[in-house]
């Protein structure tokens, strides 16, 4: 079943002089994990804004084509229904945090309060998310006193606590160290296992390779390439659209140039280990 259908979508910002999205066609399947990748300025965040309905509900401008969620165009959805259907974790956590709540706990509860959820239920759900993200140690702190990385975790918590069917993450780990980044991906993976549809904007290609089902490459407002992650990321030509490949794939491609052919091009660490072991065995090298 498709979660989102995009047909012939084009868009121009009200103050812009040219289109930032050109005639996009895209089907997002329910329960799958999609990575939006490509150079900055390619239209990734704009596309997220369209799916979340910020375009045209908040940013006006000229949008043509269709963006259907459950068969209804996002511009015809009631904004508060759409907000419950599609969660959006912003690139900049400073934008997400409301600034009106005095503790992290209350900040995370804010969205549920607005929906009129019962207090006991709110408490339980907020507590669960805090546990999941390991942020209990800051739950009584003022959100404004947090570090960039901590704010990013709180922003994420405040969205996933609402349990929307579709979750959009715009570079959710840009402020985090490698360990923090892995924790966030673990949480996103849990959301996927719960059946959520995930759309992620990310530059860390090794993590896309590890977690995403599909990759969509945007450049100059056009979809240059889309397909299963292992197809898109094992293809040398993907680099022509400004997307870097994983170190594992680049190693394999460099080996091929030296006439050291492996059986197939790996994209992840695990994949690379088994491909390399096989190659070494064939060469008579003991691993």
């Amino acid at each position: 079943m498709s979660a989102i259908e995009i047909r012939n979508l084009s868009y121009q910002y009200p103050t812009g002089s040219e289109e930032v999205l050109h005639n996009l066609n895209l089907t997002i399947e329910s329960g799958k994990f999609y990575a939006l990748a490509g150079v900055n300025g390619g239209g990734k965040t704009t596309l997220c804004n369209v799916i979340r309905g910020f375009i045209p509900h908040f940013f006006k401008g000229e949008r043509t084509g269709k963006v259907l969620i459950e068969g209804k165009d996002v511009q015809d959805w009631d904004p508060s229904d759409l907000a419950q259907k599609v969660g959006f974790v912003f690139q900049n956590p400073f934008t997400q945090i409301s600034g009106v709540k005095e503790t992290v706990f209350d900040e995370i509860a804010f969205g549920l309060e607005n929906l009129g959820v019962e207090v006991d239920v709110i408490r339980q759900r907020v507590q669960d998310i805090i546990g999941l993200l390991g942020i209990g140690y800051i739950q009584d702190k003022n959100p404004n006193e947090l570090s960039g990385g901590q704010k990013q975790r709180v922003a994420l918590a405040s969205i996933i606590v609402m349990e929307p069917d579709i979750l959009i993450f715009d570079e959710p780990t840009s402020q985090l160290d490698p360990q923090g980044t892995e924790e966030i991906f673990r949480v996103i993976d849990i959301m996927k296992k719960k059946g959520k549809t995930i759309i992620l904007v990310e530059h860390k290609i090794e993590l896309i390779a590890e977690y995403a089902d599909y990759v969509i490459v945007l450049q100059d407002g056009e979809i240059k390439k889309q397909g299963r992650t292992e197809e898109v990321l094992a293809d040398e030509a993907t680099q022509d659209f400004g997307l870097g490949l994983t170190q594992y794939t680049l190693l394999d491609l460099a080996m091929r140039k030296q006439h050291m052919h492996t059986e197939r091009i790996p994209i992840t660490e695990g994949d690379s280990v088994s491909v390399m072991k096989q190659w070494m065995e064939f060469q008579g090298v003991k691993a």
Binding site: G38, V39, N40, Q175, I205, G242
Partner: peptide, 8 residues
């Protein structure tokens, strides 16, 4: 490098 693409 935070938030930068591979070209940047």
């Amino acid at each position: 490098t935070a938030g930068q693409d591979s070209q940047a």
